[in-house]
Design a protein around this nucleic acid. Sequence first.
DNA 1: TTTTATTTGTCCGTATGTATC
DNA 2: GGATACATACGGACAAATAAA
Lengths: 255, 255
Amino acid sequence: MGTAPVSDPRKKRSSHRPPSSAGISFWRRIADELEQSIANGAFLRGDKMPGEIEMAARFGVNRHTVRRAIAALAERGLVRAERGSGTFVEARRIAYPIRQRTRFSEIVSGAGRAAGGQLIGDRVEAADDEIAARLRIKSGASVVRLDMVRHADRVPLSAATCWLSAARFPAAARVYGRTHSMTRTLAHFGVRDYARKSTHITAIIADATDAAKLKLTPGRPILLVESVDVDGEGFPVLATRARFAADRLEFVIES
Amino acid sequence: MGTAPVSDPRKKRSSHRPPSSAGISFWRRIADELEQSIANGAFLRGDKMPGEIEMAARFGVNRHTVRRAIAALAERGLVRAERGSGTFVEARRIAYPIRQRTRFSEIVSGAGRAAGGQLIGDRVEAADDEIAARLRIKSGASVVRLDMVRHADRVPLSAATCWLSAARFPAAARVYGRTHSMTRTLAHFGVRDYARKSTHITAIIADATDAAKLKLTPGRPILLVESVDVDGEGFPVLATRARFAADRLEFVIES
DNA sequence: TTTTATTTGTCCGTATGTATC
DNA sequence: GGATACATACGGACAAATAAA
């Protein structure tokens, strides 16, 4: 692709269908039309699109041609196809502020979306050098590791791994499993408030694992965030490495 | 990928060489070995690697096998191949702080790299709604637009487009072309200091245009940053949309 | 909990037109 | 002209994931 083929108007297509209006391929025109429908609100953001077979009938083409058009939109992050359930229009990117007080659920519900999350794994492990340095504990010390996925309106926004000192926060996994909130989990151990100390942001490409967790197409961009939060005394309590679906949010830093 | 098909209708490859000792393909083992060499410092970060032909001879394989290995590393952002000049090991990611006082050249030289930049285009155009809102001027008002590429150690870090009010900063392009510095350009018009007001960060995939400007492989991640800077009175003077090669830096926000 | 239907993903083909060497 | 590769479009069959009954 890239170069648009110049079509000769003289040519007679003895094939199944005439070239109708322009000289562009069907799938491109269908993709354009679908994009239009998203832009002008005919398809609501976050909603399910009609099925491939239905669209194929509506456009009068084969299902594979519709699939090619959808793939083009998915490649640009406009839609997301989920096997077994359908193709969905991606919602507008959530503005995700990075402040001292950065709380996932507050941000998401503040954006008018339903915040959700689930713990998908936990274990106690020995801190490697990097985690130990971030938490200011000894390398090899015991840490609780929590793996979670967080949603906005049932759509995954981030897959995060958190580390907490096991000495200070024993059984943190159980508490988080009950409360479904990091704020409440820390409060349970007497941390009344906590603040973001440092945030590192870069971007990577989603591999198959990321894609599965975040319901993304492999190859889509991911915002990789490493952060440290501190308690009221400025001591680190929480180290996080999170992968955010870049198609679904933008970070906002206001000074 | 994922599931291996039950029967492979393709013929067995009676290829020249047996599938090596470990049962892993040559190119994978070469890729692993090259990665090791980068990790342990045998290849210095930022340096040029040996040529493909030389490596092929050293490993005793065909040049295409080496190319396959290099492609695997390039896909992960570890190396960068430049047609006509060679393959280079990507340097470690620069820590790029986002503060109120955010100056490209200070950040890059502070990281021990040689900062550079060049104006690749400029023109006067009418502000669209978005740019006008960011600069707090009337929609359709005249703005100077500067397109530039910025380097660290001769490697492109970002491709940026800046907009300034043409009424307040006439001939900004000429001044920037002489000074090669946004700070000095603004100073020339009496703006003694300026500060970052807002920064929006998300990520996209490099297309062919981005890849050419930033010397990237298409498909690599790009950090897309939209920012506004204000003068001493808090009035917007500079709106910027920049694309940073995510393989080459990470943003750092300290609170 | 199990079954069934729906929906997307993948693979096998076929055919045609176009661009390139 | 011929050989080749590629993009487009169509048709069918089945697998895999999901949702609903």
